[in-house]
Design a protein around this nucleic acid. Sequence first.
DNA 1: CCGTATTACGCTAGCCGTAATGATG
DNA 2: CATCATTACGGCTAGCGTAATACGG
Lengths: 288, 288
Amino acid sequence: MIEMYLLEQLLAFSQCGTLSAASEKLHVSQPALSHSMQKLEELMGVPLFERTKNRIALNENGKLTADCAAKILEQEREMIERVRLLDQSRRTITLGACAPVPVADLVPILSRVYSGMTIASEIRNSDEELLAGLEKNQYQILVLHEKPEGEELYFEAYREEHLMLQLPENHPLSAKEQLYLQEIDGQNLLLYTKIGFWYELCRQKLPNAHFLMMNEFDAFGEVAGAGAFPSFVTEAAAGGELPEGRKAIPILDEEANVTYYCVCAKKDKKRFEPLYQELRRFEKHSDR
Amino acid sequence: MIEMYLLEQLLAFSQCGTLSAASEKLHVSQPALSHSMQKLEELMGVPLFERTKNRIALNENGKLTADCAAKILEQEREMIERVRLLDQSRRTITLGACAPVPVADLVPILSRVYSGMTIASEIRNSDEELLAGLEKNQYQILVLHEKPEGEELYFEAYREEHLMLQLPENHPLSAKEQLYLQEIDGQNLLLYTKIGFWYELCRQKLPNAHFLMMNEFDAFGEVAGAGAFPSFVTEAAAGGELPEGRKAIPILDEEANVTYYCVCAKKDKKRFEPLYQELRRFEKHSDR
DNA sequence: CCGTATTACGCTAGCCGTAATGATG
DNA sequence: CATCATTACGGCTAGCGTAATACGG
């Protein structure tokens, strides 16, 4: 059996050209390497080196051996990486969500119900991306804003979210009790960027609006609460509270009033039953 | 660094199911294996086993590791095999010949001129096969009975061979001084099988002859020298001597009188120059 | 002479085996 | 109590380092 350390040492020698250089690279002594190469040669059963009195170099056999050794070492590295990745994925539940609110909803529940597991989450703009990720086991749980189709999928609706326009009370539109998105197309609008599918909705329904993008949430919150620009808010994100001197006007477009579906692979239904139980009690919880 | 012996032990365990069974298979003690698996687990950095108090089994991580281990061990085996094969080929000159006489000619010369090298030889019926073998480095030297074509090839003609029909003196045909193959088509003919291209020639020019095939040379020699059947002989094979009461009649067909060409790859011309020098003196040598 | 490879020699880490312990059906 | 895994302990192999030797540009 030819052990890995021999292959590693051979490879180092083949890269360095001399035993002394390789010995420095590997932090071992020259004689140790010399011995190892002799041992390797013996184990292989064929000469691997051209030796002169104070020079040693790989012959054809040795070059082939070094090439193979590189492949084997690479494969060993790959094995470790793959197994560690598998292990990581086995102890992680990754949530893929179409919007930030479901992340805020589910991550605490997941952390509580699956204590000991790492909970990760990502927000993606398109449901297709999310479903593809579920397929590849990149995500184990999804939250979508439309009913998914697929024989392999299990899902339950668990909450709704309703978009509103938040305005200063002195804003011209603030007299309205309700409005459609097209009525504010062309306006300047403050927008937080990490909002998943909402972003696509805005680009689509407000093609002429001027968006002021902010990707820091705290900064966004300040400007939205104090500045002169209208911004979006929902009952879920606001938590029932509006900043002083602000008004929130419901938006009537169908697409702006969504139902969230919590999705998993059917084979995982049993595993995630505790999560779904929690979600069925979600309205009561969110009353708190 | 995860050493090979650990992977081998893991693989054995994965095949055997229990440490004790694996320990027998590997001729090591159970505790040794137990230790090794703990060490492997530590090196991988992730759990590989489901342990109950007196049972141990691979978990998902472990199964993946075992699969990878099998591949790595296989690759190690393959490396050794490939290098040994390369070494063998580096110290072997393999002659590919179209007939037995060139083998008898060249092998002694090669052995003398390239002492220390192993000399191997094969007889193939078709020149195409031989040329393909040269291409693949399966052969380093060829002897063909026709001039080869190819930019990469070097060759020299070195001798001729002339086919004759050997007969009992009382055979009806023995009166002839010379003949064409078609004159003996339909006869019973004794044939030694390992004669390379001659065999194809016979099948082609004597489609109606009845061949008595013999693949043991000694037995063939006896029957050919003593029996009632005609057989083929050449000046090269007979060495100038005919058995008592036999006659050899020259065959006039062009294909039955061949010139042998000694072929090598152009890149090897220098290496085989000593061989060609010997072959240029071949007529003198063969006079001995 | 300095750089390089090999040989000699002694140390020690680590691998293995035996024995003992614990757990399970 | 038979089987299997783990722990404990001690021995021995073999890989390593230091020192010495040899060779070459």
